[in-house]
Computed example of a mutant assay.
Amino acid sequence: MPAPHNPFKAALKAGKPQMGCWLGLADPYVAQISAGAGFDWLLIDAEHAPNDLRSITAQMQVLAGFDSHAIVRPTIGETWMIKQYLDAGAQTLLIPMVESAEQARELVRAVTYPPHGVRGVGSALARASNFSGIPDYLQTADAEICLLVQVENRAGMAALDEILQVEGVDGVFIGPADLAADMGFIGNAGAPEVEAAVLGAMDKIVAAGKAGGILTLDPKMQRACLDAGATFVATNIDVTLFAAAMRNTAKAALALLPDQAATGSAKTENASRYLQQLCKHWSHKATAEFDAAQGSITFDTGNRVTMTASADQLEITATTGPRGDLTRWKQVITDHLVRFAFREELSVEWAD
């Protein structure tokens, strides 16, 4: 009986695009929900998620009952760590921060049994061999291991041509976020220079006969990479999906409650001047509309202020969302108006 078939590796060899999602919540329950969603593959992340060997193993056990293939990304490409993940049953590894062909060759050795590699022969203890239940595991495992290396900085990009020549590397994943940071565009993986570098690298990967991969939440970039020949593409992350859904749900729930509002007034013959000053002052931070007699300012936070000026008085309405700090918002408005009225002793009287 041979080692279990790796359908993900076979699909990459056949040039069949595989669509995936990142798992960073480090929980088997979430992994099971994700596995039932229909992705071709799911990546269990140990580089930027709070995973360890046991939590990764638990998630692989859950995924084993579904068609979504488990990819594991270790914290770093250390041989001892790779050995543990392989013995735990991982058949596909994505190794971060690969910067040279020599590093790639060492990774090939780490996932390969002797005499061609250095993977420890301890399969009798391992989930990978079904705890000695697969008699031919040692002889057949190498062919089913899929090694993906992650190129994500300028050093790796400079060495890409040499990395692509390393036999035993099945695919190269371009990490746009770290690459953007190293190129001077931290937090902006969508910069034209970064996208050009990513697509240029994808062209090289495909031309070399390797599988190309990427994680991007930008639909246009997803399409561009697939059109360039990428064969493993992740389109989202469980963490960001859950966080966005929870925030939007909370926002919708709070929207069911009434806003908080307070009215106030200030006796002054310069009401029109102060109204316009406040609107101009906040116009670069918020949406401000005003003329000599009326003005309104609306912030993205939900804080608002409306004002009406007469010959001897400024009428003010301060509004926040249902959970806003109305007391502080009134004080902020008061402080600004008092500062504008430094030539007179202005006092804002709030009704409540």
Rank of each mutant, 00 (worst) to 15 (best):
V72Y: 00
D136N: 14
G89W: 00
L125S: 11
R105P: 03
V111E: 03
A124V: 10
L125H: 08
R127Q: 12
Q59L: 07
P74W: 01
P114G: 14
S129L: 03
L164V: 15
G117L: 12
G89D: 02
D67S: 10
T140Q: 15
V108C: 08
L160N: 04
V149Y: 11
Y113N: 11
S55M: 11
E78F: 03
G122H: 03
Q91L: 08
Y85P: 02
Y113M: 12
I71D: 04
A158M: 01
A158Y: 02
R154T: 13
M81S: 08
E144N: 14
C146Q: 10
L53N: 12
D136K: 15
A90W: 01
S68G: 06
V108R: 10
S100F: 14
A126V: 08
D161A: 15
Q150A: 07
M157F: 12
G156T: 02
A64E: 15
M60I: 14
A64R: 12
M60C: 10
G120I: 07
L125V: 13
Q103T: 04
R73L: 03
V151M: 11
A158E: 07
G120W: 04
A126M: 06
M60T: 13
S100W: 12
V72T: 04
D161G: 13
G65T: 00
V108D: 09
P74D: 02
A126P: 08
A158G: 00
T57E: 08
T140N: 13
T57M: 04
A128Y: 04
A159R: 01
L94D: 03
S129D: 03
V108T: 15
G117R: 14
R105G: 01
M60R: 13
T75D: 02
R73C: 08
G117Y: 11
I82F: 07
M81Y: 04
L107N: 06
A128W: 01
A110E: 01
L160A: 01
M60H: 09
I134Q: 15
L147N: 14
I95C: 00
L53G: 14
A159W: 02
A110T: 04
P115G: 13
L164I: 15
Y137T: 06
G120Y: 07
E162T: 11
D142N: 14
I82S: 06
L94F: 14
L94N: 06
H116T: 02
Y137S: 05
T79S: 14
D142C: 11
L164T: 15
Y85Q: 08
I134D: 09
A88P: 05
